[in-house]
Simulated assay, not measured.
Amino acid sequence: MHHWQVKIWLYRQHWHCPWDPQQSIRRGLYLQLQHPEGSCSWGEIAPLPGFSSHTLSESFQQLTDFLEHRHDASLRSAATYWGIQCAKEQRPQAEPDSLNQRYPLLQGDEQAILSYLEQYPGPLTLAKLKVARRALTEEVSLIAHINQAYPQLKLRLDANGHWNYQQAESFLAQINTANLAYLEQPCASLADCLKLAKADVPIALDESLQHQRIDAQTLANIQTLVLKPTLLGKNTDYYLQIAKTLNIPISISSSFESRLGLLQLKSLANQYGDLYPGLDTLRYFSHKQVTRLIYFRQFADNPLLY
């Protein structure tokens, strides 16, 4: 009798330059589904500490509960849901070199950012810069330096919701908005973001999408939806449909997954015509990865179907 086999691997990978000094190691799970004829499909389950609503141990528990009982109500972890979907749908991985076709993610101090741009190997037409990390005068000065050195470079500025409306308004009044591709999640408050969008500021939403399902009418003035399947889970498909209904762009974006997860995200971006997905995160990891088998079981039928 042919069986379906499920293996779950725990991986550990050191940060090359941690985005959070308290998080020196990135941990996640690989879900491996071996089909009866011998082929395998994969999914990555890697909740991001500080952003995901469930921990890695909670996500693992939900995964094993689902495998044992086949009940999707147990899938409250967005990361677990996304990993299962990738394995169940046999989501392909994009070609490995496709991750080189990216636009850079810029974070760190001014010297590090400008140095990285000087050494960037490809054409510079688009970059993403983390803002709301420094004093306002420093932010404005950095953007002015970038605009002067790279006048053709469009910037996606990501505040991760760290400003209130007045701070965002003050920031926008002091930069050259002609080089602004969009301002991503300037405020934690959805209402403040929508207010800026109605004032003709190109606004993208990220964190607000993770907290609730927002209807199409509310999102009518938003320029771009930034979709992170590891954090959105079931809501990924919902917002893909909203974007199609409104005919607005999406940006498939990384939550610091490993290479496997990034290649599957690139495949999703290709599927939906996202030419500039936000996947420039692999360089923040060391190359060495350690994996360990933590679960193995055989099933008479496909355990991911419910």
Rank of each mutant, 00 (worst) to 15 (best):
L126V: 07
A127S: 08
A127L: 07
K128W: 00
L129D: 00
A132K: 08
A132N: 06
R133K: 13
R133A: 12
R134L: 12
A135W: 11
V140S: 02
S141K: 15
L142Q: 02
L142C: 05
L142T: 01
I143G: 09
H145D: 12
I146R: 07
I146E: 01
I146Y: 02
N147S: 13
Q148P: 06
Q148M: 12
A149D: 07
A149I: 07
A149F: 08
Y150C: 08
P151G: 08
Q152T: 12
K154E: 12
K154S: 13
K154R: 15
K154M: 13
L157W: 05
L157M: 08
D158Y: 07
A159R: 06
H162E: 15
N164Y: 05
N164M: 07
S170N: 15
F171W: 10
F171K: 08
F171Y: 12
L172Q: 04
L172H: 02
L172Y: 01
A173Q: 15
I175D: 01
I175A: 09
T177Y: 05
T177N: 08
N179G: 14
L183I: 04
L183V: 00
E184L: 04
E184R: 07
A188L: 14
L190R: 05
L190S: 05
A191D: 11
D192G: 09
D192T: 03
D192E: 12
D192F: 07
D192S: 12
C193T: 06
C193H: 07
K195V: 09
L196F: 03
V201K: 08
P202N: 09
P202G: 08
I203T: 01
A204T: 04
A204Y: 04
L205V: 02
L205A: 07
L205D: 00
D206W: 06
E207T: 03
E207A: 09
S208V: 03
S208K: 07
L209Q: 03
Q210A: 15
H211Y: 15
R213C: 10
R213Q: 13
D215K: 12
A216N: 00
Q217T: 11
A220N: 13
N221R: 14
T224Q: 14
T224L: 15
V226H: 05
L227F: 04
K228A: 06
K228Q: 04
T230K: 10
L232Y: 02
N235V: 11
N235W: 14
T236W: 06
Y238V: 04
Y239I: 08
Y239V: 07
L240E: 00
A243K: 06
L246M: 05
N247M: 13
S251Q: 13
I252T: 02
S253A: 10
S254W: 00
